[in-house]
Amino acid sequence: MRIGALKDSYGADQALFDTAVQRLWLALGAVALLAFPFAANDYWLYLACLVGIHIVSTTGLNILTGYTGLVSLGQAAFMGVGAYVVALAETKLGTPFLLNLLAAGLVTAMVGMVVGVPSLRVKGLYLAIATIAASFILHFVFQNWTTVTGGTRGLSIPPAQLFGLELARPFALYWVITPLTCIMVLAAANLFRTRIGRAFIAIRDRDISAEVLGIPLLRYKLMSFGLSSFYAGVAGGLWAYFFRVVTPESFPFVYSIFFLAAVIVGGMGTILGGILGAVFMTLVPEALKLVVGLLSPWMPNAVALLSPVRTIVFGALIIGFLILEPHGLAEIWRRIRRFFHLWPFKT
């Protein structure tokens, strides 16, 4: 029976995965991720890729909203910036795939920092409104800067090339999106073990004492905006390679709300929350679709009748989470872990 984890160095105490059980689960998860594409069909691979892209973007928003406490409703517009950067780099410059993604991240980070400038003065709802304004401005630019963005018709992108291989089908893209998602999530988890991450949380919890401890608010808030937008930009770039056509309508305002909901449902200010939230928000509508499909043998017109109900059920699930589990799915996971901590001796 495990009663505790003995550590004999500070390094071991500060490790991300500090017990053998955790490492075992991690290894099993990695094996599952490696085996998944060989077992799944194209539809499931499509969903897996989409989940990966959403995890990157949600983690980015979680850094800004969950950890730094700055509410942003511009995440989809930032993803749009990344997608357009990738589309332009791929079609006009023909630069390599990974470089394009990096460029998408960096350009979006700069846009994000500009949008973040008001954050020194305004907080909470006011900042949310400021980011909405910024996202509408970006949308306007996507639509009307026709010479660059192709206007409402948008831009189409040839399949990504990596090491001479064409990444056109979800099966191929899966092998790029999954590792990138893992790396970016791990990087975010790492950040919150260091002074920069702690400074973000300090700003969220008590900005006055953060200042007294020597944390310049504007610099760190802009850093958080920049980093969050970097994640959005990379996610947007992957999105562009995945769907291969970018139009202004690809990144509607509702999409920003989708990410904010994912952060809240998953659990604000936890890395696991960003992952679980993105998975939930992407897969639950699909699962509901599946349920409706299963009902069709008994109800011939189930699809037509139940499609609107599906949206209502999805909405009700989100509201249910907010009321019953304000700390999100991550909290539920923590409770499950505690339950099995001393199982079966104590429950």
Partner: peptide
């Protein structure tokens, strides 16, 4: 640990 913030050198990239 936040008290040590000003005396630490880790930058954003190191942190990631």
């Amino acid at each position: 640990k936040l008290g040590r913030h000003v005396h630490m050198r880790t930058n954003l990239l190191d942190g990631l």
